[in-house]
Amino acid sequence: MFIDIGKPIADTTNAFIEWLIVNHGDVFESIANALLTVLILIERVLRGAPPWSVILVAGLIAYAASRKPVLSVGVMVLAWLLGSLGLWEQAMQTIAIMLVSVGIAVIIGIPLGVVTARSDTARMLLNPVLDLMQTIPSFVYLIPAAMLFGLGKVPAILATVIYATPPLIRLTDLGIRQVDHAVVEASRAFGATRWQMLRGVQIPLALPSIMQGINQTMMMALAMVVIASMIGARGIGETVLLGLQRNDPGKGLVGGIGIVILAIIFDRISQAFGRRLQAYRAVEG
């Protein structure tokens, strides 16, 4: 009763990947090299700088985002804990991968969110793709990605971007759709162009939601570090992976704590920043 479509799909995909590698391998290599250049630069700065200066900068960023000394000190203590757990180098590698991934996710995610907010058709078309990106097991695309980009950091970034961009697209879309229609209408009545409306009214008012999306993207990117380490990206994920492989649960736990600490640091800073962006709301009520 069944017809066999699994095999043709598999064969076509394999042929396609092979064709990509043979005919366009150099394109992927140059993409990989460009990403690596940025990544290595960030990593070199983070790992080259003395740890105390990185901790200090983290504290300053936390203060700038929140204007709360308590949060700032808390972030510095957490960063110090990372080092004390013996995870400093790995943490810096993980942060570098995460920052690049989140950067790419923002560049892709916000414009796509804007597009889907404007057009129901675009949203209808993109939605199943986003569902797919979030649910398909990472290894399905990690293996071809490793074939195209080589093992290591670049496929790790790719996997992270694929997994972590959908919430940003969805929350940007939601944020823009939820902007008060009366306010958008007012801007239209004053003759604002679509771009002026977007830049001056819709994006600023959707910013809390967009910041929530960026926060989600960061958290999901951290959730990917262990998987990323399996294809050769170094970082805290590698510590966890080694703990698993060598039957060393203690080491695995230490790595796990490290990931949680990173998550808390990024979450609190981005949340505080999101709240400050809507300072005008504080006067309501």
Partner: peptide, 22 residues
């Protein structure tokens, strides 16, 4: 042209004010 017309010729006041909260 419509955007230019709105910018030059008309002003509008709304029931629920329609002010930009930010």
């Amino acid at each position: 042209e419509l955007e230019a017309f709105r910018r030059q010729k008309t002003g509008m006041v709304f029931q629920r004010f329609g002010l930009f909260p930010h």
